[in-house]
C-alpha cells in the first residue's frame, strides 16, 4: 500500500528498536557478566564490555553445577515429555475421533477438564503420588475391601509400592498427564475428510495401519509444533523437578533447578554474595538449548503455541 508517513515510520522503528534493545540488553549483560573475573564483576559500576574469562567461568560453572549430568537429566526429561506427549496425544485423539464406544463423551470431558488446572495447584498430592505411584490403586483395593479378600484367599498381603521420586519416569509422567496435545490432534483429525478413511479401508487398512501410514504422515507439521512446545515446556519446569528429585547427590536434578544453587544469597539458601560471573556462565549454558531450538524451529514453535493455546 502506498503510504507517505515518514513521521509514523520513524516512530515505528523507534518502538521496534527499543523493543529489540530491551530483549538484547539483559542477554548482553548476562554475557558480559560471564566473561569477567569475580573481582571485576564486584566492582560497583556498569559493566558493558566483555572481559576475557568466558571459558574459565564456563568451566567453573560446569564443574560447580555438575552441569554435565544435570543437562543430561534436563535433556532426557524434555525429550521424554515431548515424545511421550506427541505419541500419547496422537493415539488418544485417534481413539476418541475414529471409534465409537460407550462413555466416549465422558472420557472426552474427563481429559478436557485437565486443561483447566496446572500441576502447580495440586502439587502436594501429586508429590505423594510420585512417592508411590500405586498408592491410588492400593487405596482402591483397601477401601473396596478387595485387599482383605485377596489376603484371605491367597494369604498374601497386598502392598503395592512404586516410588517414582528420583527417576525419569517420575519427572516425566505427571507432565504428560494433560490434554494439551490431544486437542490439537483431535482438531486436526476432524478436518481430515471421511473419504480418506473410506478409501483406506477399501484398500484393506486396519486401524493401526491407518494411523501410522495415513494420519501421522499427514500431521507431521503438527507433530513438530507440539514437540517443540512440549520440549520447551518440560525444559522450563522448575517446581516439579525441584520436588521430584530430592536425592541431589545420587540422581541429581535438572539443570534448571541446579541454577539456583550457583547463586546463593541472603534470601535464598543462606548468605554470601554469589560468584556472579560463574552464575551468569551457568545461566548462559542452561538457556542455550531452548533458545537454539526456538531459533531453528521458530515457525513450528509459533504455530504450535497458537494452535495449542497452552
Amino acid at each position: 500500500m502506498i503510504e507517505r508517513t515518514p513521521l509514523l515510520n520513524t516512530a515505528t522503528y523507534a518502538v521496534l528498536l527499543l523493543g529489540a534493545l530491551s530483549v538484547f540488553v539483559p542477554l548482553w549483560l548476562v554475557y558480559v557478566g560471564a566473561t569477567l573475573t569475580v573481582r571485576e564483576i564486584n566492582i560497583p559500576e556498569l559493566h558493558l564490555f566483555p572481559g576475557d574469562h568466558l571459558f574459565d567461568n564456563l568451566q567453573a560453572a560446569w564443574a560447580r553445577g555438575h552441569l554435565g549430568g544435570r543437562l543430561a537429566n534436563s535433556l532426557i526429561m524434555s525429550l521424554g515429555v515431548a515424545t511421550g506427549k506427541v505419541v500419547m496425544s496422537a493415539i488418544t485423539a485417534f481413539g476418541l475421533v475414529y471409534f465409537r464406544f460407550p462413555g466416549r463423551m465422558l472420557i472426552f470431558w474427563m481429559i478436557f477438564i485437565t486443561l483447566m488446572l496446572p500441576l502447580e495447584v495440586r502439587i502436594v498430592p501429586t508429590y505423594a503420588v510420585a512417592a508411590n505411584a500405586l498408592w491410588p490403586f492400593q487405596t482402591i483395593l483397601d477401601v473396596t475391601g478387595l485387599s482383605t479378600v485377596i489376603a484371605a484367599l491367597t494369604g498374601v498381603q497386598v502392598a503395592l509400592e512404586w516410588n517414582l521420586l528420583n527417576s525419569y519416569t517420575g519427572l516425566i509422567l505427571p507432565l504428560i498427564a494433560t490434554a494439551t496435545g490431544t486437542f490439537l490432534y483431535r482438531q486436526f483429525f476432524l478436518t481430515v475428510p471421511d473419504e480418506l478413511l473410506e478409501a483406506a479401508r477399501m484398500d484393506g487398512a486396519g486401524p493401526f495401519r491407518f494411523l501410522t501410514e495415513f494420519l501421522l504422515p499427514l500431521s507431521r507439521a503438527n507433530m513438530a509444533a507440539l514437540f517443540t512446545i512440549m520440549f520447551l515446556y518440560a525444559w522450563n519446569q522448575y517446581l516439579w523437578p525441584l520436588l521430584a528429585t530430592p536425592d541431589r547427590a545420587g540422581f541429581g536434578t535438572t539443570s534448571v533447578v541446579e541454577l539456583k544453587m550457583l547463586a546463593p544469597s541472603v534470601l535464598t539458601n543462606g548468605g554470601g554474595t554469589p560468584d556472579w560471573n560463574v552464575a551468569m556462565a551457568g545461566c548462559l549454558i542452561v538457556m542455550l538449548p531452548p533458545l537454539l531450538l526456538v531459533a531453528f524451529m521458530q515457525r513450528y514453535f509459533v504455530r504450535g503455541l497458537i494452535a495449542t493455546e497452552k
Binding site: 476418541l96 464406544f101 472420557i107 481429559i111 505427571p174 498427564a177 494433560t178 478413511l197 473410506e198 479401508r201
Partner: peptide
C-alpha cells in the same frame, strides 16, 4: 466413517486415562 471395533478404540485411549487418573 469410523472403525467398528470398540475394544481397539478403548485400547488407544486407555494409557491416557490411566495417566490422567493417577496424576490428575
Amino acid at each position: 466413517a469410523t472403525f467398528s471395533k470398540t475394544s481397539v478404540g478403548v485400547m488407544f485411549v486407555l494409557p491416557q486415562i490411566l495417566l490422567v487418573f493417577t496424576f490428575f
